[in-house]
Each structure stands twice: as structure tokens, then as C-alpha cells.
Amino acid sequence: MLTGLNLSILIFASEGGGTIIDVNPGVIFWTVVTFVILMFILKKVAWKPILTALDQRETLIRESLEKAENAKEEAEKILLKNQEMLAKADEESKKLVNKSREYANGLKEQMLKESKEQAQKIVNDATLEIERQREAAFEELKSQVAEIAVHAAEKILRENLNMETQKKIADNFINEITKN
């Protein structure tokens, strides 16, 4: 029942005798007015701030990306530099170690040589001293032999010189010498 009522309203309730291509000047007027006002209002309150914000954001993004790129490059450069420095330091330390080793070796060699020399010198000195001592002892011995010889001669002269005694003396003397 209700649908029937609605139906009749829908189908038969046409109003004016207008057609779809009737151009109403009043509508044109109002549309132009509405559109122009809308455009100016929107331009002021919407488009300008929105477009500015979009531009800002785009600039921000571009700058951030550029900054990041730069930072990356910088970091890579620093890394390279650090590696270089590290390598240099490594080389330096190696060189230093080598140098000190060389120095130590040199020192060792020198010390060894010096001590050898010292030892040699000490040995030489000792040899000389021994030689000297021996010579001195020999000299003393020589003088003692001479003295003994003089003593023996004196003794011979004091005793009566006979054949027998002479022989005896000589034997004694020889014995004395061989004893010494």
C-alpha cells in the first residue's frame, strides 16, 4: 500500500515543463559567484598553506637525503683516513720495533765484544804478570846459585887442599847443585 503511494508520487509528481537543456541564467550567475568566492577562500585558507607545506616537506626530504648522503661520504672518507692512519701507525711501530731490535742486537754484540776484549786483556795481563814473575824468580835463582857457588869456593879454599878433599868437595858441590 505504502509502496504504491510512493510510486505514484515518484512517477507523476513532475512539476515544471522544463527540459534538461534549459539554461537558467540565474544558476549561471550563482555558480560563477559561488565558484569565484570558493576559489578565493580556498586559495587563502587551504591551497596556499597546503602547497607551502608540501613544498616545505619536499625541500626537507631532499635536504635530509642530501645531508645523509654527505654524511655517508664523510664517514667513508674518515674511515679511509683512519685505515690509512692505522696502517701508517702499524708500519711505524713495526719500524720502531725493528730499530730497537737492531739497536739491542748491536748493543749485545758490542757488549759481547767488549767483554771478550776485556777477558782477553785480563788473560794477557795475567800472562805477562806470570812471565814477569817467572823471570824475577829465575833472576833470584840465578843470584842464589852464584852466591852458593861463591860460598862453595870459599869453603874449598879454607879447607886443606888435598886430592881427596878436593874430590870430596867437588862431589859435594855437584850434589848440592843437583839438589837445587
Binding site: I11, F12, A13, S14, E15, G18, T19, I20, D22
Partner: peptide, 9 residues
């Protein structure tokens, strides 16, 4: 007519 009535101003 009702269609026109609906779409017309």
C-alpha cells in the same frame, strides 16, 4: 516526467 523532475532543477 518524473525522471526529468528528479534530475531537473
Amino acid at each position: 516526467g518524473w525522471i526529468l523532475d528528479h534530475v531537473l532543477d
